[in-house]
């Protein structure tokens, strides 16, 4: 594929979105990136969405649907926050602890899956309920608050968030594209039975996937908690909502992956989502309108993605007619 086509395919969606969002803001007399806060909001949204997208995609691409990602973020951030507040540690310690606990809870989730050998969606439902309940029990339902802690809240800056994003992307690219684990992962993804029959150990591969996904969600939980200094409890699947923000970036990532790297695609998908999110902030769009717009964008993009050939065919016929 020519470099030009690759670049076009890779950057088309985020660039078009940026243009559209900028035009809409301009028409309302509002600047998209008026202050540094707007850039921070944008970068934070990229960080949140990209981490959740990576976490979900790791398992979903292997046919493992995971409702428990939100509960892993919740539980790991609760435990790391409690430790940090008790020992008077700083935000880096909280981030590292959150990642470690996220990895542990992800591993437990994977271990349950490989032990009981039930469909992963079922296991994830049980894990989500369990982790939510555990977080609730650990905090007595009160959640955790550190809105007073300027130190912990100070982490959420543009450079720090960018560092997290870059490390996450590099990790994904290196581990999933340039290691034996990554090759085995892809083999299992595209032909599970054949891959297992050729000797690939599926169970360790799945466990590592869950662990990595958990680590990403631990990081996302940390970013979410240090945004406003509070961690609210959830019960009865209240924690599954973060999962839904990842679908559009994932599909965008899949599309971009044809032209370059799908991990870069997920990141650019997150950038696209973050631009839309910033538009909502700049125009103070109400919640119901946000939901409608987001749903329509997802459906329209999917329609395009699943009917690309037909849509292209229409234009080709028109060109021929002309």
């Amino acid at each position: 594929m020519k470099l030009g086509k690759k670049l076009t395919g890779t950057l088309a969606i985020p660039v078009i979105t940026l243009l559209a969002v900028w035009l809409i803001c301009s028409s309302k007399g509002v600047a998209l990136f008026e202050t540094q806060l707007n850039i921070l909001t944008f970068v934070r949204a990229i960080a949140n969405v990209s981490l959740v997208t990576f976490a979900l995609a790791i398992n979903l691409n292997s046919g493992r649907f995971d409702f428990s990602v939100g509960s892993v973020a919740l539980l790991s951030s609760v435990i790391s926050a409690k430790i940090v507040l008790a020992l008077n540690l700083g935000p880096v310690a909280m981030l590292l602890l959150s990642i470690v606990f996220g990895a542990i809870f992800g591993l437990i989730s994977g271990a349950v899956y490989v032990s009981v050998k039930l469909p992963p969606i079922i296991v994830s439902l049980a894990i989500a309920l369990f982790y939510e309940g555990l977080a609730f029990a650990l905090t007595g339902g009160h959640g955790v608050s550190f809105a007073n802690s300027a130190n912990l809240l100070s982490f959420s800056t543009i450079p720090n968030l960018l560092i997290i994003i870059v490390i996450a992307v590099l990790f994904m690219v290196v581990v999933f594209d340039h290691t034996r684990f990554g090759y085995e992962y892809k083999a299992l993804q595209s032909g599970q039975k054949v891959a297992v029959n050729t000797g690939i150990k599926e169970i360790p591969n799945a466990l590592i996937c869950y662990t990595i996904a958990g680590a990403f969600m631990g990081a996302q939980g940390f970013i979410s908690a240090t945004t406003n200094g509070t961690i609210q409890m959830s019960l009865n699947f209240g924690s599954i909502s973060p999962m839904f923000m990842a679908f559009l970036p994932m599909f965008i990532g899949g599309f971009i992956g044809r032209f370059s790297n799908d991990k870069m695609g997920y990141l650019l998908g997150a950038v696209t989502s973050a631009l839309i999110s910033l538009l909502y902030v700049r125009l103070n769009v109400s919640s119901s309108v946000q939901q409608i717009v987001s749903a329509l964008l997802l459906v329209c993009f999917l329609i395009y993605l699943n009917n690309e050939g037909v849509i292209r065919g229409l234009f080709v016929r028109k060109e021929r007619a002309v």
Binding site: T41, A45, N48, Q232, S286
Partner: peptide, 18 residues
């Protein structure tokens, strides 16, 4: 400035911060 609702998503936090 005015913000309402309990969306707890990036846009909501962004509006509060704004």
């Amino acid at each position: 400035g005015y913000v309402a609702g309990y969306d707890f998503d990036d846009a909501w936090f962004g509006k509060l911060a704004a």
